[in-house]
Simulated assay, not measured.
Amino acid sequence: MTDPPTLAEVAAAAGVSPATASRVLTGSVRVTTSTRRQVHDAMSRLGYVRRRAPRGSAGRRADHVIAAVVCEHSPRLFNEPYYARLLSACEEVLATHGIPLVLMTATPATASITGPPLMAGAVDGVLLIGPRARHPLPVTLAASGIPVRCVGRPPDGVELPYVDMDNRDGGRQAAEHLLLGNRKAITTIAGPPTLPAARDRLEGFRQALRDAGVMETPVAYGDFTHASGAHAMQWLMQRAPRLDAVFAASDVMAAGAMQTLRRAGRTVPGDVAVIGYDDAPVARHVTPALTTVRQPVEELATLAARLLLTALRDGGAPATDPVLPTELVVRESG
């Protein structure tokens, strides 16, 4: 029987030092993207899988533990209602199986801290939430052999099983609703362009407008916070003074946009129609109540947790990457 490849052999095949190969495995940010891909290509060619401590060995707990790794800074994790809904639903599924959920954050800057315990076998599976382009951890996890389920589509070029919303169709529904409302000067506040969900919402929105013959759509970018929505709305009013509609990629940003419009003396929806995204609690609490694209957050989380449990139980590659439908909820704002 052929011995499994070692990390030193992977390093030699990739043309890097063993120390560099090790840094790639632990998600260190001190490794260039090209070097990271060289190492992972070598791992794939050689069939290298990071070996973990066997269950029941000294110092190793006997029960399953799942980590929810949120690829955001802690302030957003604790201030954004989306994460509370998502994590609560995940925890509920795992609790019925007696499995604890450990919460971790991992920005690109902290991936070198988060990565090593995951690679060393501290957990049995990972729910990876919201990874963005050029984040080192998804690439590392993809080659690790650890069961992973991405909540949201992973960055382009990273092969990980996922569950996602149909964000592109959500953007389409928002655009078509504004067009049906006879809005002529339509603008949008998009989310971070490195986040696949934000890109999909923007592209679905733009494509629906292009299909209707609207080729120019002013776009401002925010980071899903109230302040960024308010600032983006101010920028859009300067860029397109006659705007009569705005689609914001989150309800929180839409609420910020409405505040800016109100301060500028613009009425909603009389002067400007506003559509948000999420159907978060804020959508019902703002005045006027917010028309929005509802995404089934709890269903997404429940399905992701169940599919990860199936992978833990059965092993092997997942059969599907489900994409859940979104739904336009029409209220008073547009």
Rank of each mutant, 00 (worst) to 15 (best):
A174F: 03
A174E: 04
A175M: 12
A175K: 10
E176F: 05
H177S: 06
H177C: 10
L179K: 07
L179I: 09
L180H: 14
L180D: 15
G181E: 11
G181C: 09
N182F: 03
N182M: 13
R183Q: 03
R183V: 04
R183I: 06
K184R: 13
T187L: 02
T188F: 00
T188S: 11
I189K: 02
A190V: 05
A190Y: 00
A190H: 06
G191K: 03
P192S: 12
P193H: 00
L195M: 03
P196H: 02
A197Q: 13
A197L: 05
A198N: 07
A198I: 02
R199H: 04
R201D: 11
R201L: 10
G204E: 09
G204V: 03
R206M: 13
Q207F: 07
L209V: 04
R210D: 10
G213F: 00
V214K: 01
V214G: 01
M215W: 01
T217Q: 05
T217P: 10
T217E: 05
P218S: 12
P218T: 07
V219A: 06
A220C: 08
Y221R: 13
G222Y: 04
G222L: 00
G222K: 04
G222P: 01
G222Q: 04
F224A: 07
F224E: 03
T225F: 00
H226E: 14
S228K: 03
S228H: 02
G229L: 02
G229A: 09
A230L: 08
A232T: 06
M237Y: 01
M237I: 11
Q238G: 15
R239N: 10
A240N: 05
A240G: 01
P241M: 14
P241S: 15
L243S: 14
L243W: 11
L243G: 14
A245F: 11
A245N: 13
A245D: 10
V246A: 10
A248C: 15
V252K: 00
M253G: 10
M253K: 06
A254M: 09
A254C: 12
A257D: 03
M258C: 06
M258E: 02
M258H: 07
T260Y: 10
T260Q: 15
L261F: 09
L261Y: 12
R262Y: 13
G265R: 13
R266M: 15
R266W: 14
P269V: 11
P269W: 05
P269K: 11
G270A: 15
G270W: 01
D271F: 07
D271E: 12
D271L: 09
D271I: 09
A273M: 12
A273R: 09
A273S: 14
A273F: 08
V274C: 11
V274S: 08
I275F: 05
